[in-house]
């Protein structure tokens, strides 16, 4: 391991084991008075238990159920998301894109890992993987097939590469035969991956 001092990359001075690297940085910053370890616990608790795809599922279920809400979300979602308590870090500028019988949307960030945190939480491992970032823009149909989604050739695929601070949420198509369901029941059909575009709503066939 390179542990000689490289002035451009002082990170090489840290221990080689990543868990120890985190520990070393946390220790140094805590001793300097720059970090409150209790604040780290609070951040982790927030993204493990409070902010996650259950938020996005509420938005989708309401869009499926309420045509006026749907139209307003497609036009300008930020005031409504603020009302629902879903404004926040990495979701300051949301755009909602809807899947239809003609168009399937899928979201990526090829340059890093941009993702709508207030609606979906922290991204899963695969979203941040080199394979997803490099391939979904070039061969989205093959990548979707790896998720078990086989799209008909005549359906248009629109890949959204999140290159700015705009964050995209996909609204999956509502499955047929769900007319009588309540919003809460509909939420259960909306998976995280369906709001990224790598899955369909539960009960729907491509």
């Amino acid at each position: 391991m390179p542990h000689d001092h490289d002035p451009d990359h002082p990170h090489a001075l840290l221990p080689p084991d990543p868990a120890l690297r985190v520990k070393a940085l946390e220790t140094i910053l805590t001793e300097k008075g720059l970090i409150d370890p209790a604040a780290l616990d609070e951040i982790i608790d927030t993204y493990e238990h409070k902010i996650g795809p259950q938020n996005g599922a509420k938005v989708v279920a309401r869009m499926w159920s309420d045509p006026q809400f749907r139209a307003a979300m497609l036009d300008d979602p930020m005031p409504l998301l603020d009302d629902m308590g879903f404004y926040g870090r990495q979701g300051e500028h949301m755009v909602i894109v809807e899947n239809t019988p003609e168009v399937h949307n899928v979201v990526v960030c090829t340059l890093c890992s941009c993702y709508p945190w207030p609606l979906l939480g922290i991204p899963p491992g695969w979203y941040k993987s080199d394979a997803y970032r490099s391939r979904v823009v070039r061969e989205p149909r093959k990548v979707l097939a790896e998720f078990g989604v086989d799209l008909p050739e005549d359906k248009k695929v629109r890949v959204w590469d999140s290159t700015a601070e705009i964050r995209y949420l996909v609204v999956p198509e509502r499955p047929s035969g769900t007319d009588g369901l309540s919003e809460t029941e509909l939420e259960a059909l909306v998976s995280r991956d369906s709001m990224i575009g790598t899955a369909l709503a539960k009960g729907l066939k491509a």
């Binding site: 899963p124 394979a131 997803y132 970032r133 490099s134 391939r135 790896e146």
Partner: peptide, 15 residues
Amino acid sequence: MGGRYGDGAVDPSDS
């Protein structure tokens, strides 16, 4: 890396 070849399959179980 957008468009790059050679990264192999995406692993949806890395979720």
